[in-house]
Simulated assay, not measured.
Amino acid sequence: MPTVCLTEIPADVLALIEAVQAGPVLKAETLNAGLNSEIAARVHTADGTLFVKGLRQEHCRVWTQQREADVNWYVNGIAPALTWRIQAGGWDLLAFEDVPGRHADYAPGSSDLPLVAEVIGRLSTIQAPDTIVRTMPDRMKAHTSTPELFAGDTLCHTDWFPTNVLITNRAVVVDWAWASRGAAWIDPALWVVWLINSGHTPTQAEKWAARIPAWNIAPPAAIDAFARAAVSVWEEIADGQTQPWVLDILNAARTWRTHR
């Protein structure tokens, strides 16, 4: 379930930020694009602008803050750089360099598609750090009888919601809360579902995935199994949901499964 994003930064959080910045917060703009943070804000100080995200330390998903911190060094040039982390006053806060980009457009014909394919290709060559112990076979074991087909040592982002990709002169990937260890073709496969949701046919979507070398050497049976498992995942997410985007993604996953 998504975490409610606060519309204003609490005074105690502002005080923590000002302490580490050694100066006042001149302006704070809260954002509502993310689904995983209580605090998501662009913070302006005398030293510049940062993107700050955070959760209360008792929050059930505060572990995602550690996941983001663990991953950041390994995705230099792919993700915004982590500037500092605060764990105090009941809060866990991360500050990243601010990337003044717009959200990616996955629609057919979009000039963003080559940039996204390029960054997924770069990511598919990065080995997951030892701190990333959650694996794709473990995450998917309730949705397939063959989770071992998804095993690997690649660092997988796994959440290709278009708001998680910022476009400048390149694609920058944010929100690494669900980063996992798995096969190098996992992220291209997940992107296929989002491309179908954005108006591509399954064949067109897979042609974009084929720009990523890891996709082309993946066993077809493994991709087939993943397509079936993806439907099961989204059926679970959609159970009781009324948000149109969730149902749209479920339909896209079903379309891909039928195609495979």
Rank of each mutant, 00 (worst) to 15 (best):
L16A: 05
W208A: 03
Q21H: 08
R134C: 03
K27E: 15
T64K: 08
V119M: 06
S198V: 04
A183Q: 00
A41C: 12
D159Q: 10
R254S: 08
F226N: 13
V192K: 04
Q241S: 15
A142C: 03
N36K: 05
I167L: 14
R170V: 07
T201L: 03
I167H: 07
A33D: 15
L26N: 09
V133N: 00
T3A: 02
G101W: 07
W234N: 07
A128W: 03
Q57T: 14
D112L: 07
V165E: 05
L94D: 12
K207L: 14
S37G: 00
R42W: 00
T7Y: 00
W194E: 15
F161L: 12
Q127F: 01
H143F: 15
V119F: 03
K53G: 02
L93T: 01
T131A: 14
I86H: 08
I17T: 04
R56V: 02
H44T: 15
S180I: 11
G182T: 08
G101Q: 08
R134N: 14
N216K: 11
L82E: 14
E148V: 07
H59K: 01
E118Q: 14
A171G: 05
G101F: 07
E148L: 00
R228Y: 07
P108A: 09
W178N: 14
V246M: 12
A104T: 09
N164P: 11
W178D: 14
R257K: 12
P244F: 08
Y106F: 15
P10L: 01
D138Y: 06
L149E: 09
N36F: 10
S37P: 00
A218P: 04
D47L: 06
D92P: 05
W84A: 12
W63Q: 12
G152L: 10
P108E: 09
C5I: 01
W91A: 01
I217M: 06
P219Q: 05
